[in-house]
Design a protein around this nucleic acid. Sequence first.
DNA 1: TACCAGGATGTTG
DNA 2: CAACATCATGGT
Length: 296
Amino acid sequence: MKNISIKTPSIFSFKECLKFLNRSADERLFFVEKERIRKLFFLESQPIFSELYLENGKELKLSFLNKNPSESQVQIIKEYYENWLDLQSDLQQFYKMAAEDKLLRPLIKKYYGLRLIGIPDFYEAICWAIIGQQINLKFAYSVKKSLVERFGSKFEFEGKLYYDFPDPATMLSIKNETFAEMKFSRQKVTYIRAISNDLLNQTVDIETFRNLDYSAAKKELIGLHGIGNWSADYILMKTFRHPQAFPIQDAGLQNALKKQLGLNKKPDLSSILQLSNQWKGFEAYATFYLWRSLND
DNA sequence: TACCAGGATGTTG
DNA sequence: CAACATCATGGT
């Protein structure tokens, strides 16, 4: 099996990325095992089981464990990982800004090299944003787990099952009562059905989003039923990687600020705006590091 | 046991 | 435009 090298950027810690990736025991779309990320892809209906690891502590290697994919498939998966771990971004400007920021300075030190872990798949990001609305993360993960275990494509490796996220057609085939069993609210099912249909009919097309700037893309996203301000910024941050995406009303962000500032209640919107005034152009990374700070 | 959770939408005043 | 009701259930 061949190994593909992936270029590592300058401010980068694979270990910090793994720590973030490993935050939920209910994650089913990938696993972190023995300092390696293992993830299943389905390309042209074929399972391709991959892993990413650090060789000799410095060089990122991508390898395939069940078969040798074609060159174009290799390229797709390589790009997926590069996007997922945000390997293309240069963090120097963010770190420079953060070093001057009281709130962020300790975080860039503590989590040095952490990359904004994204969700490269647009449909998965939409569904995850909708699932996560107004419920705690633990619950959100358990809902996603039920969905993925039941309706994701599976592949077994060394006695363990790996999964792919269900596609829109599969999602549309799920009955309302089954969604209810998996603890989806009826509202969320309505949102997901409509958006799944839009993607199948190509009323909504991911490529058009890629070509839009931040505010145009946000406007389009909010036009989708079930995608509000928070979800739009979340998707712009995790999938389209706009550095200024800022899910400002996020409960986790507010709790992180409360914790970092030692407040006895969550800060209000205006004080968050004030704090974040100096983060302009780096709001996504600032948010991500603050989220990270909630875990320890 | 209330209250909160990585919200969104529709209605009401 | 702001304030509230509703969803819908697990976590703390």
